[in-house]
Design a protein around this nucleic acid. Structure first.
Length: 458
RNA sequence: GGCCUCGUGGCGGAGUGGUGACGCAGCGGACUGCAAAUCCGUGCACCCGAGUUCGAUUCUCGGCGAGGCCUCCA
């Protein structure tokens, strides 16, 4: 199957052809681990998780190498440590663990590699030395800077010219850069801050250099796909390109992919604005991880997505329909089949998850209308295979509908049993009273020919 | 100020130069003791103006509106 991806570098949708189909490489910028990630931060891991699943299906599970880094040294982390009095490593390890829990709750598969910046400082130093030797970087009092003037095609990713950058640059007083667009590769050590020894002076790495060094070390460039949020195009990814390509003389990544923002009331979700909500909070509110994931995938990854409770409500309703179909076929063994072609083609078309979801909907209808056991098995198999690629329908269907009840499930079972008895005795006044009582507890009871089942009310 | 993206029904959201997916919500029907779930059917939309075209929601230009990047940022 042919996969097409929109490449930020060319601003076009292109056929994806890995350099080596037996070793497809993907790198996605991961979190700076100093606090809780918000739901907007969760969009890239979820989106690229779907791509990871699609690539593994296409090229084979062992053929795809996906790396997502942890930035575990940076100004914000140092500030957080200073504020709380905890050691830096305690903070970064704690939030790495939290990040893994949160993404795991959203059904995100673990990447093959999760390199830490602090484990690659030596690689960064070596890269900076190369850049200094080539004259692409220079040493100043406050650190080592990359010289934008030395890079003829600087700006090619974000589509900015050097002139535009000069015109748009803000006045910056506290450093000694030669050009306003030059950026720090290395920050000279300051008292009380962590630092590493280097031939060009003790200090700590700048942000951009870590991805360049880790990609080179862990995957080797050029990689096939480099992903991240749209806000990373400039300056982060632009600078990664500048560093890596100046040092190595070849492309850093062949395809650059960027996801759009999550908004709240149409405004970018961001910590500084304060309009954030975390996956953790949503889970505490009782939303299920797959519901959050579905909501994130309900829009195309490059489009903005306005986050709201209504969006979650609709996502849950959609998943309820899927789980309802699976529950209805719980006694049918799923056939061992692949996801239907139309579904795969939707995903292969630049990860068009809304179109894929539409195909999923057709599969649900097929599952609900199938009468013959063979048709049911096929429909169930196709539905599960397709859902697997989106990373949903991993839960047991009964648990899905009852997850929020926990210990109270037993007493609800008892009330439902009472109601079944009342109905058998044709005591409809009592059975309706019991239904009202169950409804008051948030339970929907459903009568069928072979008894009654229940689930949370939508 | 420079650069960029977007504007589809009540809501979410694909897509297309020519009968406008899909989901949620609504309505009608089947089913049900009544419901729910499910199935069948159904109403409702392409920001405005000009241009190109036999024909534009889809292409071009202008306008209006929303958002983003240019500084940390998913």
């Amino acid at each position: 199957m042919e996969i097409a991806l929109t490449n930020t570098l060319t601003r076009r949708k292109e056929r994806f052809e890995p350099a080596d189909p037996s070793r497809v490489t993907m790198y996605v910028c991961g979190p700076t681990v100093y606090s809780y990630a918000h739901i907007g931060n969760a969009r890239p891991p979820v989106v690229f998780d779907v791509l990871f699943r699609l690539l593994r299906l296409t090229y084979g599970e062992g053929a795809v190498i996906y790396a997502r880094n942890y930035t575990d040294i940076d100004d914000k982390i140092i500030a957080a440590a200073a504020k709380s009095g905890e050691p830096i490593e305690a903070i970064t390890r704690k939030f790495e663990r939290i990040y893994e829990e949160d993404t795991g709750a959203l059904g995100v598969l673990a990447p093959n590699l999760t390199p830490r910046a602090t484990a690659h400082v030596g690689d960064m130093i070596a890269l900076i030395e190369q850049l200094l030797a080539k004259g692409a970087a220079y040493k100043a009092e406050t650190g080592v800077y990359f010289s934008v003037a030395a890079d003829a095609d600087y700006g090619k990713l974000s589509g900015r010219s050097q002139d535009e950058l000069k015109a748009g640059a803000r006045v910056e007083g506290e450093d000694d850069k030669r050009h306003p667009s030059d950026f720090a590769l290395w920050k000279t050590a300051k008292p009380g801050e962590p630092s590493w020894e280097a031939s060009f002076g003790a200090g700590r790495p700048g942000w951009h250099i870590e991805c360049s060094a880790m990609i080179e070390k862990e995957l080797g460039s050029p990689i096939d796909i480099h992903g991240g949020g749209i806000d990373l195009i400039f300056p982060h990814h632009e600078n990664e390109i500048a560093q890596s390509e100046s040092a190595h003389g070849h492309a850093l990544a062949r395809v650059w992919m960027h996801n759009g923002f999550l908004t709240m009331d149409r405004e970018k979700m961001s910590k500084s604005i304060g309009n954030i909500i975390t996956p953790r909070e949503l889970l505490e509110q009782g939303w299920q991880g797959e519901t959050i994931r579905w909501a994130l995938l309900s829009a195309h990854y490059r489009a903005p997505l306005d986050w709201s409770d209504d969006l979650l409500r609709q996502a849950q309703a959609s998943l309820d329909r899927l789980y309802g179909a699976v529950l209805r076929l719980k006694d049918v063994a799923a056939a061992d089949v692949e996801a239907p072609q139309a579904f795969l083609e939707a995903l292969a078309d630049d990860l068009n998850t809304p179109a894929a979801i539409a195909e999923l909907s057709a599969l649900v209808t097929a599952a609900n209308t199938a009468k013959k056991p063979a048709d049911q098995a096929k429909a169930k198999g196709e539905l599960l295979a397709a859902a697997q690629l989106l990373g949903v329908l991993n839960d047991d269907p009964e648990r899905w509908f009852r997850a929020t009840f926990g210990e109270r499930a037993a007493e609800i079972d008892a009330l439902v049993a009472e109601r079944v008895a009342a109905r058998a005795a044709k005591n409809y006044a009592e059975s309706d009273r019991l239904r009202d009582e169950l409804a008051a507890r948030g339970v929907e009871v459903m009568d069928g020919p072979s008894g009654s089942t229940w689930r949370r009310k939508g």
